[in-house]
């Protein structure tokens, strides 16, 4: 098929940036979207132009490196899939495809369609862990975890940190990402000791970079792992309790 691409080009973080239009003839159905861009890039190189910068690594939807706004949808039109899992067969001959980077103040553009997502690391560093220094752990089966709870924690833990939730959210809120990490740990018995300090620190860090959630639910739709906004609700509750919690009594509820 033959396509026209309208792609965001921006030389550097400080450059103004603009859209460029490229013809992409001879694209095959079974190519992935990123392979289509690879082909376009190789042609650009051969023609002496600079290839389009976009990021990817695993190309199977697990590392969270890729991320493109494709025709106004984060990761493109297929639900529950990252950009790298998108295949050209969902497009038609003659389509015009607009490709843009994630846009949010917390995700500054580095170049073209690549953005900086360090803010996510800062959020995790502020509390997204269980303090369990190596070697101190008791036998893994000492602590029982009901299957339903383990499954729910796993649902949250499936987040790949891609940032599509922020890109899709009309408020540029990072609530889905943050709540996924907070709740992954808060739903497990191991995570209880730090439950309230964790949610407090992570949410505060999140708020220093991103907007606030008004429950649009757009993030869940964009999320390649279909993480549920229920986790946002759970995080909100934990956060508000954390503000007024007498943490000296925390040992009584574990």
């Amino acid at each position: 098929m033959n396509l026209t691409l309208k792609v965001w080009r921006q030389e550097s973080p400080d450059a103004a940036g603009r859209f460029e239009t490229y013809d992409a003839p001879g694209i095959k159905d079974d190519m992935s979207f990123l392979e289509m861009l690879d082909v376009v890039n190789e042609r650009l190189i051969e023609a002496g132009d600079e290839p389009i910068t976009f990021e990817s690594d695993c190309r199977e939807g697990i590392c969270g490196t890729c991320g493109l706004m494709i025709n106004g949808r984060a990761h493109g039109p297929v639900k529950g899939a990252a950009a790298c899992q998108l295949h050209m067969r969902v497009f038609n001959d003659g389509d015009m495809i607009t490709i843009e980077p994630w846009r949010a103040a917390g995700f500054p553009v580095i170049k073209d369609c690549a953005v900086d997502r360090q803010a996510f690391d800062r959020i995790v560093e502020s509390g997204g862990y269980i303090s369990a220094p190596t070697g101190a752990a008791p036998d893994a089966n000492l602590q029982l975890i009901p299957k339903d709870a383990a499954d729910a924690a796993m649902d949250a833990a499936a987040c790949i940190g891609c940032g599509a939730c922020v890109a899709a959210c009309p408020n540029s809120a990072a609530q889905l990402f943050t709540s996924a990490k907070v709740q992954h740990l808060a739903l497990l018995p191991q995570g209880q000791a730090e439950r309230y300090s964790r949610v407090k620190n992570m949410v505060d860090t999140m708020e220093s970079f991103f907007g606030s959630c008004t429950n649009h639910g757009e993030c869940e739709e964009a999320c390649p792992k279909e993480i549920s906004i229920d986790f946002i609700a759970m995080m909100n509750r934990d956060y508000v309790s954390a503000m007024g919690k007498n943490r000296k009594l925390a040992g009584q509820h574990m």
Binding site: M69, G72, I99
Partner: peptide, 11 residues
């Protein structure tokens, strides 16, 4: 914000 015109799916 998005030139492609953001297509909302849930909002």
């Amino acid at each position: 914000r998005y030139e492609g015109g953001q297509e909302f799916a849930a909002a």
